[in-house]
């Protein structure tokens, strides 16, 4: 198996793994800000690795250059979109999740 194929397989499997962990974080984390953290970082890096894998598969050609352009655009644009969403949530008064609230409610004290 040529070296190029092994590199492509490694990058694509890494991208799939990162996508799945980001989705797991989006589903299971307790608060809006933590979910945004998971999807903003995990999705961006996973997309970057998948696109680099596809670019290596096609060698030195115009197609690979265009895929690298898409990767650079995603690297700039996706964190900006995440920042815009989190800023909107902060300005609208969404409160972060704290741990003490759960403990206090268990002890039946009002805070």
């Amino acid at each position: 198996m040529p070296v190029k194929d092994i590199i492509v397989i490694l990058f694509m499997l890494g991208g799939l793994f990162l996508f799945s962990t980001a989705t797991l974080g989006l589903l299971r984390l307790p608060d809006f800000y933590t979910r945004l953290h998971a999807t903003g970082k995990g999705d961006t890096l996973a997309a970057l690795w998948s696109l680099i894998g596809l670019a290596v598969y096609h060698g030195f050609s115009l197609t690979s250059a265009k895929i690298i352009f898409i990767a650079v655009f995603m690297f700039l644009a996706q964190p900006t979109a995440t920042h815009a969403i989190s800023r909107a949530a902060f300005r609208c008064g969404v409160q972060p999740w704290t741990c003490e609230l759960a403990v206090l409610l268990d002890e039946d004290t009002v805070e």
Binding site: L76, T80, H83, A84
Partner: peptide, 16 residues
């Protein structure tokens, strides 16, 4: 008054 979105929009517009 959001510096990040303004800077990135200013950077990306000619390429779009």
């Amino acid at each position: 008054d959001d510096v990040i979105v303004k800077a990135v929009a200013r950077l990306l517009m000619p390429f779009i």
